[in-house]
Amino acid sequence: MEHDITIKQVTTGKTKPDYNHLSFGKYFTDHMFVMDYNEEDGWFDARITPYEPLLMDPSSLMFHYGQSVFEGLKAYTSKKGGIQLFRPEKNFNRMNISSDRMNIPEVDPDFLVDALKKLLHIDRDWVPVEEGQSLYIRPFIIATEPALSVKPASQYKLMIILSPVGSYYAQSDQMSPVSIYVEDEYVRSVRGLVGFTKTAGNYAASLKVQKKAEELGYDQVLWLDAIEKKYIEEVGSMNIFFKINGEIITPALNGSILDGITRDSVIELLRHWGWNVHERRISIDEVKQAHVDGELEEVFGTGTAAVISPVGRLKWKDEELVINGNQTGPVSYDLYDTISGIQTGAKEDVLGWTVPLQEQET
């Protein structure tokens, strides 16, 4: 799959926001990448254009039947100079996995990495430079065919937009543990559905329970399996890990859990350090018993936004489990420090994860 990329740049760029007060996904750069698909031409008309609103038919299938997928990754200003990405090929490979399940045509991951580099070259001045800041990257595909019949679309649009973001944690509570509410009524997904994909409906279905958790005073929701409602799956925006009696346990990928890029990186790094990491079924009752026995040493989530989110409180039914005295544990600290250090070039990339942009790209 070969494409030329046409480029149309803005003549006058936007006024950049105050980088000392960035919030997630509120500000967007001057340009975006766009590519279209139809059955006759395949993916065509790859282009970088000024960031602007879309003109879409009201009957576009995406609006009615939710045929869409997306990804999330980041670009970082490297301590060594220049800009670098963190395992971008895995995001575009995963987007193809999501697309396959949603019956969306696959794309060429190598081409998209190249397109992203060109986009970053043009908007390189938007990549923040301060500690904890980054440029969030949102690739997505939507069904654009105008029709109301329930069927796979014959036309699609792929886009990449960029947003400068600050540290996930406020400076005053850097790496402070989050609190999690364990949901026992609603479910997120089940094997055979689309829980392993990044498609919009997965996230829309979680919003009601997320609001419920916040009203109860908790930050996020931990989902259980849909059949027995006892086995742990994932948190709404991240995968979950437990350190029990000196070993690390995370739910095995079972068809309803997202194969997180940060999850994979954490497992690989922990094993590189010599930890025993088990990917297996783990029930909420096992976690509760480990807490009773004094063996639940740490709990943490993993995801692109925060890298590592230590968990200090876990509410299950009428009980609240306080983990490690509601303090961040050493494994969580080490993982955050190492992965964020690799992402920003502050630490050696011993596992070959980063993709620096070459001089002509930056």
Rank of each mutant, 00 (worst) to 15 (best):
L119M: 09
L119S: 05
L120T: 00
L120R: 00
L120K: 05
L120Q: 04
L120M: 03
H121L: 06
H121S: 14
I122A: 01
R124K: 15
D125G: 06
D125A: 13
W126E: 03
W126V: 03
W126P: 04
W126N: 06
V127C: 10
P128E: 05
P128F: 00
V129T: 14
V129G: 05
E130G: 05
E130Q: 10
E130K: 13
E130P: 01
E131G: 04
G132P: 08
Q133E: 07
Q133L: 01
Q133K: 07
Q133N: 07
S134F: 05
S134A: 15
S134Y: 05
L135K: 03
Y136D: 03
Y136H: 06
I137L: 07
I137D: 00
I137M: 04
I137K: 01
P139E: 08
P139Q: 07
P139L: 07
F140R: 02
F140G: 00
F140Y: 09
I142C: 03
A143G: 10
T144N: 11
T144Y: 08
E145T: 03
P146D: 02
P146N: 01
P146G: 01
P146H: 04
P146W: 04
P146C: 02
A147W: 08
L148Q: 11
L148P: 08
L148F: 15
V150Y: 10
V150D: 09
K151D: 08
P152F: 08
A153G: 15
A153C: 11
Q155G: 09
Q155P: 06
Y156A: 00
K157M: 15
K157G: 02
K157A: 08
K157H: 09
L158G: 13
L158N: 05
L158F: 09
I160P: 03
I160Y: 05
I161P: 03
I161F: 11
L162I: 11
P164H: 07
P164M: 08
S167R: 04
Y168E: 12
Y169M: 10
A170I: 13
A170M: 11
A170W: 14
A170R: 15
D173S: 12
Q174K: 12
Q174L: 15
M175K: 04
S176A: 14
S176W: 11
P177S: 07
V178G: 00
I180C: 00
Y181H: 10
V182R: 03
E183H: 07
D184T: 15
E185D: 13
E185Y: 07
Y186V: 12
Y186C: 11
V187G: 00
R188V: 06
S189K: 02
S189V: 02
V190A: 15
R191N: 12
R191G: 13
G192Q: 14
G192N: 13
L193H: 10
L193G: 14
L193R: 09
L193E: 08
V194S: 12
V194P: 02
G195A: 14
F196I: 04
F196G: 05
F196D: 13
F196W: 03
F196E: 13
T197S: 15
T197K: 05
T199Q: 02
A200S: 13
A200W: 00
G201T: 02
N202H: 05
Y203G: 02
